[in-house]
Design a protein around this nucleic acid. Structure first.
Length: 645
RNA sequence: GCCGAUGUAGCUCAGUUGGCCAGAGCAGCUGAUUUGUAAUCUGCAGGUCGGGGGUUCGAAUCCCUUCAUCGGCUCCA
């Protein structure tokens, strides 16, 4: 007998070799239908795999990530089976479960799979799933595995196998399809009921652009059709929140092929939105000891040669600008830090002056690959809310913490609740990729981790993701479709102070090298606004809205009074519009609600008589009538509420 | 940059297997109406069917090319 301990601490005895599925079945037949994988002694297993020793057991259902994972991973194999049936000789790369569904990378030879082919593949999958095929696991030797896949002609699989350790190789088979896979999988295809293939894309084999481009097919499956329907509705809704669409609808920004791809043109309302964000952040920066600086959009090529950026990125960026002067070249600035370093160098510094915090809303230009451009989230010209903190090593941690505070403050005001924070460290196996002494690195990495912990920040730690000059902490926020975008970032840099020979006088009257922190809060105005649009569906908080209110006269008879109120509000710093069209009030309300204007002010006979306005809040209806002066106070107290933590 | 898809009026979309002068709704402009909390009615105007080239008696429709966009990959200072 073996002892199996459940997550609640209770334990039961079972016969050796019992499977998790049998255990679930004994607890309740219904449970057995709802579990998709089992975590046995901390390792995720097939439900049917026999348990031979005492163990802890967690049964994973749909709501457990490990349950979904097995479900979608098995779905990927089902799709592969369908593809093999429809495209004999098709070769397979990898086919994992992902955050929402699964994909498989395949090489269909000289055939082309397009979106038009997906329904047929989907149909085949449904057919195969209905057969309730068993997923069976088999361990084989490396030699056998290589033989099997060489015979099949699947060079991608043999490449993968050649890198695996003998004795760890397992195959899974369902129906006529066998795949190299470490599992785990569902017991059978039976639960795979609702199936939808989503799109086709190209993907380089092993993520290497020098290697062959395979065809990646994305799909998603659910145990119930209802869940799939909900997901498809979510996708439809997400489209409506797309910042590119809302940006057009609300006339915030535009692009013009004549100006150039990836170069956003900010329209009046979009500019106001941007300016509102800048006006919000600037006093916060001053409060926190930042000095605002301004630097040019171009710089001499030698500046970037000093910083190292030219050597690393010059060839792939906008090309240098030549002048009538022979040999003289300038570059559009791809980053602000070199300029800031020269400002630091312009005056002598004492250890008592540090930290020196230098901020700039600096516009930079980067030649992103054409296929990479994406609305406002990935552009070729953008404005960073950039800052560089020059400090002593012993000040690093405190500076880090205060930047985390600022990011948390801004995220809180904007209700970015579901961000992720990622600590990016160097790869200890690959030290030559990085510059700086081990001592500095270890200290910086420790400081970042401690700072994050002391700020109670939940972080994911990723090794190998550090910048070559130092470790960093990145903040990501999701867009409407759940894609993560990096916004704020805090990076430690030992490289640039060295290259620019930055120094300060220590208490020992010796020259010392400061440490530099690069940081942004918004990331860039463009990307931040894009994410903000998708998170709010264009219904910006009052304090950010480019237009706060619109006056809707019931009929033209009230235009005189309406115009007076309009002037009064605009003079009181409340950006207000008027809708004087001879339309019915219902129509005016509808149109202006669709423009997401926060307040609609209705003026008719009653209002003229009482010298009031009827206030309607966007999305929530009538909030009663008040004097124009009262409305001004009301608006400013609302804004105060919104911008206070 | 790579793979695949898409491109018809400011926006959302129709447009049979190539065949009168390319259509609709919304937005815009006219005129009527003077309206009380999410769509009043009338009329008008608006397009070299992304650009260029070709096939054909004839192209929005077929072919080539180019540009842009979308979904991914790679990249991301």
């Amino acid at each position: 007998m073996i002892k199996v301990t459940f997550p609640d601490g209770s334990a039961r005895e079972y016969k050796e070799g019992i499977s998790s599925l049998d255990i679930a079945e004994q607890i309740s037949p219904r449970l057995a239908k709802e579990v998709y994988s089992a975590t046995v002694n901390g390792e995720v297993w097939d439900l049917t795999r026999p348990i031979e020793t005492n163990a802890t057991l967690k049964l994973n259902k749909w709501d457990d990530p490990e349950g979904k994972h097995a479900f979608w991973h098995s779905s990927a194999h089902l799709m592969a089976e369908a593809l093999e049936a429809l495209y004999p000789g098709i070769k397979f790369g990898i086919g994992p479960a992902i955050e929402n569904g699964f994909y498989y990378d395949v090489d269909p030879g000289d055939r082309v799979i397009t979106e038009a082919d997906l329904p047929a593949i989907e149909q085949k999958m449904k057919e195969l799933a209905a057969k309730n095929e068993i997923y069976s696991r088999r361990q084989i030797s490396k030699k056998e595995a290589l033989e099997y896949f060489s015979k099949k002609g699947d060079e991608y699989k043999t490449e993968l196998i050649s890198e695996l350790q003998d004795g760890t190789i397992t195959l899974y088979t369902q129906g006529d399809f066998t795949d190299l896979c470490k599992g785990p999988h569902l017991p059978s295809t039976e639960p795979l009921k609702a199936i939808k293939l989503l799109n086709v894309a190209g993907a380089y084999w092993r993520g290497n652009e020098k290697r062959k481009m395979l065809t990646r097919i994305y799909g998603i499956t659910y145990p119930k059709q209802k869940l799939l329907d909900e997901f498809l509705i979510f996708l439809e809704e997400a489209k409506k929140r797309d910042h590119r669409r809302i940006g057009k609808e609300l006339e915030l920004f535009t692009f013009s092929p004549k100006v150039g791809m990836g170069l956003p043109l900010w329209m009046p309302k979009g500019s106001d939105l941007r300016q509102n964000l800048i006006s919000f952040l600037t006093p916060e920066l001053r409060k926190r000891g930042y000095k605002i600086v301004t630097t040019p959009h171009i710089g001499n090529v030698n500046l970037y040669k000093t910083s190292g950026h030219f050597e690393k990125y010059g060839a792939d960026s906008f090309q240098p600008i030549n002048t009538p002067q022979e040999g003289e070249q300038f570059m559009l600035k791809p980053m602000n830090c070199p300029h800031h370093c020269e400002i630091f160098n312009a005056t002598p510094h004492s250890y008592k002056d540090l930290p020196l915090r230098m901020a700039e809303f600096g516009t930079v230009y980067r030649y992103e690959q054409s296929g990479e451009l994406h609305g406002l989230t990935r552009v070729r010209s953008f404005t960073q809310d950039d800052a560089h903190v020059f400090c002593r090593q012993d000040q690093l941690k405190e500076e880090f913490k205060s930047i985390i505070d600022l990011i948390m403050y801004v995220f809180k005001i904007l209700h970015f609740e579901s961000y992720t924070a990622q600590v990016s460290l160097r790869d200890p196996e690959n030290r030559q990729k990085y510059i700086g002494t081990d001592e500095n690195w270890e200290r910086a990495e420790r400081d970042i981790k401690e700072a994050a912990a002391e700020k109670n920040l939940v972080t994911t730690v990723v090794t190998g993701e550090a910048a070559f000059y130092g470790p960093k902490l990145d903040f990501m926020v999701k867009d409407a479709l759940g894609r993560k975008w990096q916004l704020g970032t805090i990076q430690v840099d030992y490289n640039m102070p060295e290259r620019f020979e930055l120094t300060y006088n220590g208490s020992d009257n010796q020259k010392h090298r400061p440490v530099m922190i690069h940081r942004t809060i918004f990331g860039s105005m463009e990307r931040f606004i894009a994410v903000l649009i998708e998170n709010t569906a264009g219904k910006f908080p009052l304090w950010l809205a480019p237009e706060k209110a619109v006056i809707l006269p019931i009929s033209e008879k009230f235009n005189d009074y309406a115009t007076k109120v309009l002037d009064f509000l605009n003079n009181s710093d409340i950006c207000t519009l008027i809708d004087e069209r001879s339309e019915k009030i219902g129509k005016k309300i509808r149109d202006n609600e669709l423009k997401r204007i926060p307040y609609l002010l209705i003026i008719g006979e009653k209002e003229v008589e009482n010298n009031t306005i009827s206030v309607r809040k966007q999305g929530s209806g009538d909030v009663g009538s008040m004097k124009p002066e009262e409305f001004v106070n009301y608006i400013s107290s609302e804004i105060k509420k919104e911008t206070t933590v």
